[in-house]
Design a protein around this nucleic acid. Structure first.
Length: 291
DNA sequence: GGTAGACCTGGACGC
DNA sequence: GCGTCCAGGTCTACC
């Protein structure tokens, strides 16, 4: 079935889809026209594949199944969150237009960051990106989805991202041996268990009114989420007043602003401080020198 | 608050 | 084929 969605004038679907590496991780996939394909498990338990494509009047959403009114509504809410359709970048674009290194991103209508349907999923993905090579991250995610995600009824080779409840049934050894997660295994087990049991309501953070420093502290209470991971999650939550500093950030900021000399994470943060509530975005979409 | 070392995997490299 | 080195963040212990 087909559903149409309206978007703001500053929205670009390919810009969101290609905003970062999530699109390379199952069950995300990019369509040839820059659109999005994703397999989602709705709250009623059905697994649906949907595609999103840009059309003149906004977005066209096609699903593999006929959905009830409630399911359609849930799917629309999910897509709105995933693509950041609710976000307004007017104020940021005004500032960014005055910075040559951000001119291209304004032109591309970039700024939105592709999100998973749930924060639980984004936390797991983020943990899988830490302290390893990107190819290993992709492999861990692929195996996690293939082994524990509910299959698409029309194609059992495709799966939705596993639920906290499903992952909470597994133990550390399974994740170490089958998913090759290494020391990250207890982090994932713990997160699945606290979310599945209701001890931690991660999805509540999507609408949290906590100031950034407190929200960052809350995120860092999750075992396996340190400074970088928390900053990355803040970006995904639409909080852009902090920069996710990893080894890449140290490298590009050093090359751009410090002549390639070794720098500290604090120097990265100081460099982007002037962007205030938008510093995360300014860093993320900066037109970095490529060496 | 800052620092050092352990934790894991997988790719690159030398033998 | 085997061993070694390295990259990549987080946690814990210690100062």
């Amino acid at each position: 079935m087909t559903v149409l969605l309206a978007v703001r004038p500053d929205f670009s679907l390919p810009a969101v889809v290609r905003s970062h590496g999530w699109i390379q991780m199952v069950p995300f996939a990019e369509l040839p026209d820059g659109g999005l394909s994703y397999i989602v498990r709705l709250s009623c338990g059905i697994v649906v594949r949907f595609t999103v494509q840009a059309i003149t009047s906004g977005l066209r959403v096609d699903t593999t199944d006929i959905l009830s009114v409630e399911e359609q509504s849930e799917l629309q809410e999910t897509i709105t969150w995933m693509l950041g359709l609710e976000q307004d970048f007017g104020k940021f674009y005004q500032l960014a237009r005055q910075e040559p290194k951000l001119a291209k991103m304004v032109e591309r209508k970039a700024g939105r960051v592709l999100r998973s349907p749930t924060l639980f999923e984004d936390v797991i993905r983020t943990i899988l990106t830490t302290n390893t090579l990107w190819q290993h991250t992709l492999k861990m995610c692929r195996e996690l989805v293939r082994r524990f995600g509910d299959p698409l009824p029309t194609n059992h080779d495709l799966h939705a991202f596993p639920t906290p409840e499903r992952l909470a049934l597994e133990n550390e050894a399974t994740f170490r041996e089958q998913i090759r997660m290494g020391y990250r295994a207890p982090y994932v087990v713990n997160l699945a268990q606290v979310v599945a049991s209701g001890v931690l309501d991660l999805e509540d953070y999507k609408t949290s009114s906590l100031p950034m420093p407190q929200l960052r502290k809350e995120l860092m209470k999750i075992i396996g989420v340190g400074g970088y991971a928390a900053a990355n999650l803040l970006m995904l939550l639409g909080r852009y007043d902090y920069v996710p500093v990893d080894s890449w950030a140290l490298k590009v900021v050093s090359n751009e602003f410090f002549g390639g000399a070794p720098i500290t994470p604090k120097q990265v943060l100081t460099t982007f401080e002037r962007w205030g509530e938008w510093q995360g975005l300014a860093y993320w979409f900066w037109d970095w020198k490529v060496n």
